[in-house]
Design a protein around this nucleic acid. Sequence first.
DNA 1: GTGAAAGCGCTAACAG
DNA 2: CTGTTAGCGCTTTCAC
Lengths: 342, 342
Amino acid sequence: MVTGQGPVTITDVARLAGVSPGTASKALNGRRGISAGTALRVQQAAERLGYQPNALARGLLSGRSFTVGLITTDSFGRFSIPVVQGAEDALGPGRILVFLCESRDDRLREEHYLRALLERRVDGIIVTGRRQDRREPIGRDLRIPVVYAMAYSSDPADLSLVPDDEEGGALAIRHLLGTGRTTIGHVTGPRRFRAAVLRAAGAEQALTAAGLGLAGSRTLYGEWTEEWGRRGVDLLLRSAPGLDAIFCGNDQIARGAADRLREVGRRVPADVALVGFDNWDVIAAACRPPLTTVDMNLRQLGRAAGERLLAAVDGHPGSGLQLLPCSLVVRESSRPPESRSP
Amino acid sequence: MVTGQGPVTITDVARLAGVSPGTASKALNGRRGISAGTALRVQQAAERLGYQPNALARGLLSGRSFTVGLITTDSFGRFSIPVVQGAEDALGPGRILVFLCESRDDRLREEHYLRALLERRVDGIIVTGRRQDRREPIGRDLRIPVVYAMAYSSDPADLSLVPDDEEGGALAIRHLLGTGRTTIGHVTGPRRFRAAVLRAAGAEQALTAAGLGLAGSRTLYGEWTEEWGRRGVDLLLRSAPGLDAIFCGNDQIARGAADRLREVGRRVPADVALVGFDNWDVIAAACRPPLTTVDMNLRQLGRAAGERLLAAVDGHPGSGLQLLPCSLVVRESSRPPESRSP
DNA sequence: GTGAAAGCGCTAACAG
DNA sequence: CTGTTAGCGCTTTCAC
């Protein structure tokens, strides 16, 4: 590479190769109607000068910027990260670049970001947020496609992708039933979280389908914390002393539950099986014993968001609230009693 | 806003306002030499049409894109996130947009991203990564400024910003000494981590300065896990049964230590004080008792990286490895025994 | 096969 | 004060 003043333009390359800019352009873009010799000379000239095509100029001409915006309200929390990663997967390393915009739940910041994205002529926007809270559409008449992930738009004409929390709850219960548990309690987060309610609904439905009910007869709503997990165990043991499993609304609650069960002398999983939700590795793996938990497959959700956005950019838009499958990650905390190693 | 075909251009605005594009441009950009009436008519026309200036065209002309790249090798781990947030703080919501590039420690991905960023004419690049591992410069003769944060460049001509781990270690020890502890052990992560070694060095130095040595006489290197924290406590209690404090190389180790101390009947902080490192809220706050810990102020580090990058873009580059201060977050795990509530 | 010219949207410079 | 012109870097006609 030769060090000169300012970025190298295609005109510089053309001059060095002894051709016109138009010809250089064709050669570099593999257009046909160029002799092999010329093509080679242009390639070499570009190489020598370290030529990088100016994407701004290209975008101006083509009307596409090969750029998308990613607006997250979640302060980039632990749920947004895998979604973002998945989206990047779908968009490819360097093919389409992602503008990161953290709105931090601030409407004004969001507007600023939206304007900035529109000015930069992004090809589309992904909106992601905390759990699957319903939210206002990001803007009206945007003329570019938008996909919501995790958070979902209140406008059903928009495409929103969210994990199927209800099915996730059912998954947890069916697993416990399948490993011989019958008296199952449920401790979860605050009732105002849609996710908590949906998971509980899925759990209760799965129990009902098996002709059973919830141990302690009702879902214990509380906080998303270990502290609440510990207290939840105390409450459950009082109302349902014979319980043999607890499904927890997230991994922190489950971890608190595991600690408490150990403290009161109940063995996990021998006496009581435990299933969490989120598959948050630091928690689930550090739990004693390691935690069986429901994974929302957020990375795949992010990837799906990226793919759906690309499809929309190519003229194949989608719409509606779409549920993506959760899956179960089985670890030690729910091992059936029969198969315990000696 | 009027819905038409394709984005609204300044020519559309000019036509509606009955002026030339040049005049419209001046009016919209607050250039003087425009009558108040014209200015108003142009503003209104722009408003009516929902005009958004095309940043690609502007960038083509000005040579600046008001865009920076952020390359992270860390798979966006927990350390990168606050750095990214801080950088966004410095760059302002929408003023300068950030391209997110996760290289995932893949050299090829990194090259793709770098090329893509250069083609898009970013004004600068921030490189961030895991802890403060030394790394190769991202490229040569880039002609745009680069700032390294957390990870640092092996080329001293580059500007690298990293937390002062050594001072952080000293901070922890001085706090423990200041609250009356004298027999202090140190359990930390793998020796191959520079951060582990630096923190240990700072700790030992602070002890030496007080005429003391490490309880158990040497730093216990191991893993960054709770499991190792528990084992570390066992080892320390064997070699230094009378110890009254443990400084742990990260919060997970500290949390494991807290659990183990409780299990063996040592009260925290009454009998043994505990200090962690990272101030990772989920761990530090959920710990029983809540954990005193060293905070690397990563968000400020990210902000500093953003500011230094802007300065470099404006022609004021920096260089060298610069250490940014850690601070101590005091919680219950290190409360002096005297002041315990009844 | 190759070159010249026009134009993407915008702004700076210069006329009027 | 306002309009015209030129050009940022690139690609795409359309001549030759």
